[in-house]
Amino acid sequence: MPPQMPSLEQLEPIILVTSKWGASFHIPWYLFLGGMAGGTLLIAALADLLGAKHERYQALSRIAAYITLPITIVGGLALTFHLGKPERGILFPLFMSNYRSWLTIGGWIIAAFFPLAVAYAVLWYFRTGRAPRLIVAILSIPAGIGMALYTGFLISGTWSIPGGYWFSPLWDTRYIPVLFLISGLSTGLAGCGLVALAVDHFRPSGVLRRELGGASETAGTLSLLDTLVIIAEGSWIYLMLAAFAAGDVGQKLVYGVLTKGDLAPWFWWGVIALALALPFLASLVEVLLVKVIRVPADWLLYVKFVMVLVGGLLLRYVIVWGGEIRKPLPFPPFNVY
């Protein structure tokens, strides 16, 4: 008899979970917004630094710095209020004492990230000189990478456990942090592109209009970059699945549940289609329309960016739900007795 793929409900009674991270919106949304905030701050810093010489990409850096702030705040609130005792979580420097735990390390990464995000937005808003902004930009690069990576390390805290043993095979330290970094960059680019398009479309008067005049061209550049990141993300997911398919019992179980089991529709339609395949297709069609047929196709970029964002969120949901799949504790086989 071929082995039956157990559904998540069948796995449930063994793991006795009553209060999962995937049961409320808090953690998936935090992972999504945290990764995206890391991506946008990284984009702001890189655009600022790379365009320093010829005053290029400055509008992009400004958009990215502005949208980092609300994303960080909403993500931070989601993270805080998933706690059983949010008031104790807010005072984490007083309470968090176990520096082997990724939750503590992540608390300090967010504590470093948030002032930088605020400073970057404030410096852009008040248009102070370049020098202070460049200092913040240089500090923002490790902070942005750290933030996006941390969302992955949080759910794969293997190294803090004696013997490095972790029972959620999907939450693998070797794959998830990098996946979340790539996805954070992808969703960050999409978020910046969406805002650039919207600003260009609605043409607000005053300072914003002058600053973001070339937003439509910026969105095109962002779309191209995002396509490259999407290719990297797809390759990484392929590597991850290939490793799981050839892995131990728990990894094979994860591979089955993701590709054929309960999570398969979410994985194939939500992650593979919405976050990877359809945006890639949209880019191809957009290039075809603009470069060959020569008709404007801004609406396609809107669609693409929204798909990347929704796909990024669903990726976090799939990964958090998949964490419920535990490595089975093998029962004593019958022939032993």
Partner: peptide, 26 residues
């Protein structure tokens, strides 16, 4: 602080989180 991290570390599913108030997810 009720973060739920132990729930994911434990192979036996021992940690559980009775919800006592409307404040916080668990």
């Amino acid at each position: 602080i009720g973060c739920g991290y132990c729930l994911y570390a434990c192979p036996f599913g021992a940690p559980q989180f009775p919800k006592e108030s409307a404040f916080g997810a668990r």
